[in-house]
């Protein structure tokens, strides 16, 4: 249950929004689908909700002068799915958007919210009644982990569907703060600590995501594996993007694993292996094995046995990377 007295504010300017967010117990809201649930579960207890949707450019999808795709952070997931600009610049992003949650969730949820969703664990994202039955874990402010209690570390999983593909596309974020605007790589968003997964400071918010369009010779793909084909969060997801891949150049590859850790995981060893000229079937298998090695899932979600999720990481890698390599060969042959 959500305690009464939550207030809603809807700033029109970034400075004002950041000031509001800097106050204690303030939380940003756009779609609210994920935040609402955390509030209902009692794991988030903001007193004021700062609505970001009226801020300038927040709901816009546009191509900047240099061709960069600029996605306002409050753009809904279904807008990404249906946008002709996205379809033109990075169709893989539309595909990934289509695999987010359920249709209704996509109509409500925002890009920024998807990126800033909290890490999840089946011992944590539960109502107060349920949590009374167990000692609080690290993420709930306690001093133990119900999954792996060997190190003082939280093992909750970051399960954004959009983060891996955006990371593989080397997207950048525009972050607004009280001191003004800054720009950072999406990989800099994550702290690596599942208990406090994001690096944004109090009073900061993401206003836009910038994506360099996929050009000629660029290839990208995304795969999501979940228990059901709709509604579910991923058990494992994998995104790959290769720039300058099929136009004869050396090519640059980004491989990013999702949902198996407190943040999306890049697999540089596998990238290097396949970037090398002459990489063949054997290297795909090796790269897939490296991807699986980087996946360190724990038993923290339904139907997500760790060995199985590692196996799936390997299968998805084999499929996506095999296809990628085939395309490079086809273009050079």
């Amino acid at each position: 249950m959500i305690s009464p007295g939550v207030r809603h504010v809807r700033p029109r300017e970034y400075q004002e929004a950041c000031a509001l967010l800097h106050e204690r117990q303030a939380a940003p809201i756009a779609g609210g689908t994920e935040l609402y649930l955390r509030m209902k579960q009692g794991v988030a207890t903001p007193r004021s909700l700062v609505d970001l949707t009226d801020l300038p450019g927040m709901r816009q999808i546009e191509r900047l002068a240099d061709g960069t795709l600029r996605l306002g952070a409050a753009v809904t997931i279904s807008a990404l799915e249906r946008s002709p600009l996205v379809a033109e610049a990075a169709p893989v992003l539309a595909e990934a958007a289509q695999r987010v949650g359920a249709p209704q969730i996509r109509n409500m949820g925002s890009l920024g919210g998807n990126l800033c969703q909290e890490t999840m664990c089946w011992w944590y994202n539960r109502t107060a009644l349920w949590r009374q039955a167990k000692e609080p874990c690290y993420k709930a402010g306690g001093s133990l982990c119900h999954v792996v209690d060997q190190e003082a570390v939280c093992y909750a999983a970051y399960r954004s569907d959009l983060a891996p593909i955006l990371m593989s596309l080397e997207a950048e974020l525009i972050v607004q703060g009280r001191q003004g605007e800054r720009r950072m790589g999406i990989d800099e968003l994550y702290s690596g600590d599942a208990a406090f997964p994001f690096t944004l400071a109090a009073g900061e918010l993401i206003s836009a995501v910038l994506v360099r369009p996929l050009g000629e010779g660029d290839v990208a793909a995304f795969a999501k594996h979940a228990h059901r084909r709709s509604i579910d969060y991923p058990l494992v997801s994998l995104a790959v993007a290769a720039r300058g891949w099929t136009n004869g150049a050396a090519g640059r590859l980004r491989i990013v694993l999702g949902a198996v850790s407190g943040m999306p995981i890049r697999v540089p060893e596998a990238e290097a292996l396949l970037e090398a000229a002459g990489a063949g079937e054997r290297s795909v298998a090796e790269a897939a094995a490296l991807v699986a090695k980087h996946a360190k899932p724990v038993r923290n979600v339904s139907f997500g046995a760790p060995a199985y999720r590692r196996h799936i990481a390997k299968v998805l890698a084999r499929r996506l990377l095999g296809d990628l390599l085939a395309r490079r060969r086809a273009s050079s042959g």
Binding site: W122, R126, A133, R228, R229, S230, Y233, S302, F303
Partner: peptide, 18 residues
């Protein structure tokens, strides 16, 4: 004795896709 799947999503009730 603690139910780890106390909602339809964690429990996995099939959708139209299944």
């Amino acid at each position: 004795g603690l139910l780890l799947t106390p909602n339809f999503t964690d429990y996995g009730l099939p959708t139209s896709m299944e």
